[in-house]
């Protein structure tokens, strides 16, 4: 149970529920789960280029020749990449940082997936970089850092995704911080 509780997203009660289910209520499911987890951990690893989950050295996105290799979208985690892919709005390639700068928690640039980022910028194919990091303070700082240290030295267009109202949502229910960024990010018509 302790082992389950240490997983992200599981608290004491859910861990208890899962443990009971796997051991008492449905022991068969637990062997199946163990098998699948073993297979997955053996088969999957980080993509050597972008940090996404991959079965081989390269993930399916990096290996595909249908993606636009001149656009690179920088995301914090693999789940962010999944979200972008589900939306199906971006045809370029990704780079997963596996975190953001957070000195208080001991995360410095050396812990981010930056060496392979620099390597892939070497050949000059990437023309535009889109920073799709959150707009909290750490996300902000990470963007500044990347811009200064990595992109600034190269001839690359750097943009950052906009922040504002969720689509389908009206102005009434948005909180003040969201409204402020929506106003800051307004576009002329």
């Amino acid at each position: 149970m302790q082992a389950l509780k240490s997983l992200p997203g599981l608290g004491y009660r859910s861990a208890e529920k899962v443990a009971l289910h796997l051991i008492v209520e449905n022991p068969k499911a637990s062997t199946g789960l163990v098998d699948r987890l073993t297979q997955a951990t053996e088969a999957l690893g980080p993509c050597h280029t972008c940090g996404n989950l991959a079965e081989n050295q390269l993930c399916s996105l990096c290996a595909s020749d249908e993606r636009d290799s001149s656009q690179l979208c920088i995301v914090e985690g693999v789940t962010d990449l999944f979200a972008m892919e589900r939306a199906g709005i971006f045809r370029g390639l990704y780079h997963v940082l596996h975190g953001k700068l957070a000195p208080v928690r001991g995360v410095g640039p050396e812990k981010l997936n930056l060496i392979s980022l620099e390597n892939r910028l070497e050949d000059g194919k990437v023309k535009e970089v889109i920073l799709a990091l959150g707009n909290d303070m750490e996300g902000e700082a990470t963007c500044h850092y990347l811009n200064q240290e990595i992109f600034g030295k190269r001839e690359i267009q750097v943009t950052r995704i906009g922040f504002g109202l969720p689509s389908g949502g009206g102005v009434t229910y948005a909180d003040e911080v969201t409204l402020r960024s929506a106003l800051d990010g307004r576009k002329s018509m």
Binding site: A141, H144, Y145
Partner: peptide, 10 residues
């Protein structure tokens, strides 16, 4: 410096 600078913006 660059790491510190990153946080000086905010």
């Amino acid at each position: 410096d660059p790491e510190i600078q990153a946080f000086e913006h905010s």
